[in-house]
Design a protein around this nucleic acid. Structure first.
Length: 338
DNA sequence: AGCGTCACGGTTGAA
DNA sequence: TTTTCAACCGTGACG
């Protein structure tokens, strides 16, 4: 059920329950934090709950990403047909084998790594549900089974997009290793750092040259993070606002170097002052622009108008329509790459 | 006053 | 096509 309109929080900011804040707001939170503005002030200025500010900043510190997590979908499956086949083989060779022994063998044989190793309970379930009547079937199947996999079995690993090429994913300094499904599209180093995206590197580096938590070496990536693996298109498209009525939120204005800016969240003089909540109009603001999130023009960042050189035109549409097409393209590219 | 954390009600998308 | 489930979301409250 799509919300008819956004809701208004205690600070007067508009939000859509269950949906991430617009990436522009998220970016703005990090941006302001980098400028040394306290989270509580960021919260008040952007009218975002301090819990949310805290969460976004914490995530940024931890992962280097401002993007929301993958919403919806299912966890990557670990019980791929290949794994099941190996489990079946182990069970055939040793009918008395324990699930934990199978688990160890999957790891030892390189069928799985530590990231996609099924749990003992999963293995037990496979044994029970899929291989339970193995003894009755085995003779029949062994005589019937073709040397090639059945047609319905994919030749690629079932969940190839969720494979965990952890060893191939470079981890940037200060970054924790990420599961492959989170990190596989990261390219380090990237020019998509927050400061690059913001276009404020020179400013921030001058002002907060020694600010480890928000070091400009923290790298940002704008590729897909939803489980659908949105395409890492050449444009720094962001996801999380994939519903049509929210799409404009993800449509970052493009600077000449192709990087988005959000500076008008604070400095745009055209920002209307906050008015008492009128959900319909505010949601219109939420979905079309982010102006409803912004306090009136009276607020200025502590550092002055350091961000003002950057234009911000949220209404200017980025080619977000390419998302769907790119998604398909990406799937084929990803499939062919693996 | 500021911040971290968590329950809550909500959305989302793969299975 | 519909349902289920488990992920995520931001808010608001608490300590």
């Amino acid at each position: 059920m799509e919300p008819a309109f956004g809701e208004v929080n205690q600070l007067g900011g508009v939000f859509v329950n269950g949906r991430p804040l617009p990436n522009a707001i998220r970016l703005r939170i990090v941006e302001l934090a980098q400028l040394g503005i306290r989270p509580c002030d960021i919260s008040r200025q952007l009218r975002v709950s301090h819990g949310c500010v805290s969460k976004i900043l914490a995530r940024y510190n931890e992962t280097g990403s401002i993007l929301p997590g993958a919403i919806g979908g299912s966890k990557p499956r670990v019980t791929t047909p290949t794994v099941v086949k190996h489990i079946r083989t182990y069970k055939q060779r040793d009918p008395g084998i324990f699930a934990w022994e199978i688990r160890d063998r999957l790891l030892a044989d390189g069928v799985c790594d530590k990231f996609n190793l099924p749990s003992v309970s999963s293995i037990s379930r496979i044994l029970r549900n899929k291989i339970g009547n193995l003894t009755q079937q085995s003779q029949y199947e062994s005589s019937k089974q073709a040397p090639h996999p059945p047609p319905h079995q994919p030749t690629l690993p079932y969940n190839h997009l969720y494979s965990y090429p952890a060893s191939k994913v470079p981890t940037p300094p200060g970054m924790h290793s990420l599961p492959g499904h989170m990190a596989m599209h990261r390219i380090w180093p990237s020019s998509h750092s927050v400061t690059d995206i913001l276009g404020i590197r020179s400013i921030t580096e001058q002002q907060i040259s020694d600010c480890p938590p928000f070091s400009s070496t923290k790298l940002e990536e704008w590729s897909a993070i939803n489980r659908t693996n949105f395409p890492p298109s050449s444009s720094p498209l962001v996801n999380g606002m994939d519903k049509p009525h929210l799409e404009p939120e993800a449509k970052y204005a493009q600077t000449q170097n192709g990087l988005p800016t959000v500076s008008s969240y604070v400095t745009a003089p055209s920002m209307p002052p906050y008015h008492p909540p009128t959900p319909a109009s505010h949601y219109t603001g939420y979905s079309a622009t982010t102006s409803a999130y912004v306090t009136g023009p009276t607020w200025q960042p502590a550092s002055g108008s350091a961000l003002s050189p950057h234009s911000c035109d949220f209404a200017s549409p980025l080619a977000f329509n390419s998302l769907t097409a790119n998604r398909d393209a990406f799937h084929s590219v990803a499939a062919s790459a693996l």
